[in-house]
Each structure stands twice: as structure tokens, then as C-alpha cells.
């Protein structure tokens, strides 16, 4: 009986995996937290949402004591989105409430997450890992907007955020 239970559990894990639910990060990339702000894809002007040639969107974000940059992430609904994020100092957590987007930012490594937001709406994005005395103040936002509205914005600007 017990063996069956274990078999069932493992089977469920494989089933969920093969059916393209959320999967662990497919490969590993590294980044140097000392210099992420000086060169490479995580420089200030390159952060935010970018439209790729294939129509998908890449969101680049940086976690640091005690905020995410950009502080407000804007993404289109119903579009494949790849989140690429790293930390500039300590370990941070990357959680978008009301979704199952939830990962860790470990300095030295890049977290890569393929996601999709079904419907427009607003979410909070707290840091979910203890990162120092200001951890409780590390709340960002995510705005999911209609695909067409996003396209209009993207025509004007190459990196989008909803920072006011």
C-alpha cells in the first residue's frame, strides 16, 4: 500500500512535469552582483519589459536591499513572458501574489522563469526571503494590462515599467 502511495506521488510529479505546468529552471546562468549595474543586461536603462522579435516579452528585474528595480513591472496579458532576474547583494525572494510565480534570487546566479498572465489585473510583488532589516518594506507591484494596450506602449518605448 505504501509503495503504491509513493508511486502515485512520483507519478503525479512526472505527469505535472510532462504536461508543462511550472517547471524548475531549465538551465543555469551566472551574473556578477558587483558589476550588474555597470555592464550587461541588468544595467538600469535595460531593466523592465522588452518585446522580443517573436512577440514574447522579456522582463528584466534586479533585487537589492530593499527594493526591486523596476519597482512596478508591467506585462501584457495572454502573452508568453520570460522573467530574468538576479540579486545585487543578498538572497531575495520573488513572489507575485495571486499567481504561482515564485522563485529565489541568489546573488551570483540568474533566475529565469517562463510565465504567462491570463487576465489583466494588479498584483503585489513582495520579497519572500529575509534580506535584512528592511525586508518587510520590500514590496513591488505588477500590472498586467491588455495585450493591445501593451503593444501601444511598447511602440513608444523600448523598456517598459509602470513606475510612477
Amino acid at each position: 500500500m505504501s509503495a503504491c502511495t509513493v508511486g502515485l506521488l512520483v507519478g503525479m510529479a512526472i505527469f505535472a512535469g510532462v504536461h508543462r505546468a511550472v517547471m524548475p529552471q531549465a538551465w543555469i546562468e551566472t551574473a556578477n552582483p558587483r558589476t550588474v549595474h555597470i555592464a550587461g543586461e541588468f544595467i538600469e536603462s535595460n531593466l523592465g519589459s522588452a518585446v522580443e522579435a517573436d512577440g514574447s516579452v522579456t522582463v528584466r528585474a534586479l533585487g537589492q536591499q530593499f527594493s526591486f528595480t523596476p519597482q512596478c513591472v508591467v506585462v501584457p496579458s495572454d502573452t508568453p513572458v520570460t522573467i530574468r532576474a538576479t540579486s545585487a547583494d543578498v538572497v531575495h525572494g520573488f513572489l507575485i501574489t495571486g499567481t504561482n510565480i515564485n522563485t529565489m534570487l541568489v546573488p551570483g546566479y540568474i533566475s529565469i522563469l517562463p510565465v504567462k498572465f491570463k487576465t489583466p489585473g494588479e498584483h503585489t510583488m513582495p520579497c519572500q526571503e529575509f534580506c535584512g532589516l528592511g525586508h518587510e518594506g520590500m514590496w513591488a507591484k505588477v500590472k498586467v494590462i491588455d495585450k493591445a494596450a501593451f503593444a501601444t506602449l511598447a511602440a513608444k518605448q523600448r523598456r517598459l515599467t509602470c513606475v510612477e
Partner: peptide, 21 residues
């Protein structure tokens, strides 16, 4: 990939800053 061998970051187009950071 499954073992965790790091991959080099694929080159991507970057937006340069308009001011000195």
C-alpha cells in the same frame, strides 16, 4: 542542463543609459 552546468548568457540587444550612472 538538468545537471546544472552553467550556460553563457545569450547575447541580447541592450538599451544604453541616456545619462551617466
Amino acid at each position: 542542463s538538468a545537471a546544472g552546468v552553467p550556460r553563457a548568457t545569450a547575447p541580447s540587444e541592450q538599451v544604453a543609459p541616456t545619462f551617466k550612472t
